[in-house]
């Protein structure tokens, strides 16, 4: 039950790729500068594997933007950046002369919006291609360390995690981030149904 076929995974990659492309376009417009987002790599993991799969031990402080989605599937989407990377993105977007240390808590709002743009772009690509409605809440921003990720507290064996690794390139700087979707096991079935219908429509079986 807790698996996705190769075909499903390819389709998800494709769809998220579409979303990430839209996100890059919106972000570039916002900062009037070229921002590239890499095609994401998608894997499905257990909640207990999140910490190990995330970024690695050198980055313990994380900047998180989460949005709850209500629809046929997906309950929570989280965009994770190592805190230092998040501050680099912000200082670049707001004022290239700012050092990451000078980017204040106040600019959490800006981080929230960046997460909002990326997550919404991905979800709207899914909603669009699947022909479904995904009711999205307002984004929330927080800082956390890898040990106390809220995603782990909220999840249990009933949940699965769709992990996407994305890279953001801005002014020749590469910034690594992760996109995490927390799915309930039953949601996974719904996601698979949506993917099947989508693949059927494309004539792929």
């Amino acid at each position: 039950m807790s698996e996705l076929s190769e075909l499903h995974r390819d389709a998800l990659c494709e769809l998220f790729n579409l979303g990430v492309g839209r996100a890059a376009h919106s972000l570039s417009q916002m900062v009037r500068d070229e921002i590239e987002l890499s095609a994401p790599f998608v894997e499905l993991i257990q909640p207990s594997e999140v910490s190990a799969a995330l970024i690695g031990s050198e980055f313990r402080e994380l900047s998180l933007v989460s949005i709850d989605f209500d629809g046929p599937f997906v309950s929570k989407a989280i965009l994770l950046f190592p805190e230092r990377n998040a501050l680099i993105i912000l200082s670049n977007m707001l004022d290239p002369d700012l050092t990451p240390e000078e980017v204040s808590e106040f600019e959490q709002e800006a981080m929230c919006e960046i997460g909002n743009v990326i997550l919404n772009a991905c979800m709207s690509a899914l909603a669009d291609e699947f022909g479904v409605e995904l009711h999205g809440g307002l984004p929330e921003h927080s800082f956390s360390d890898t040990d106390s990720l809220p995603i782990l507290a909220a999840s249990n064996d009933e949940h699965l995690i769709l992990l996407l690794q994305i890279q953001l390139t801005m002014r020749q700087r590469l910034v690594q981030g992760h996109l995490v979707f927390l799915l309930s096991v039953s949601s996974l079935q719904d996601l698979r149904d949506c993917l099947d219908a989508y693949l059927d429509r494309l004539g792929i079986h």
Partner: peptide
């Protein structure tokens, strides 16, 4: 179109 929410921060917009 998609029922998505957004926020616009003053520093970016």
């Amino acid at each position: 179109r998609f029922k998505l929410s957004s926020m616009l921060a003053p520093s970016l917009n």
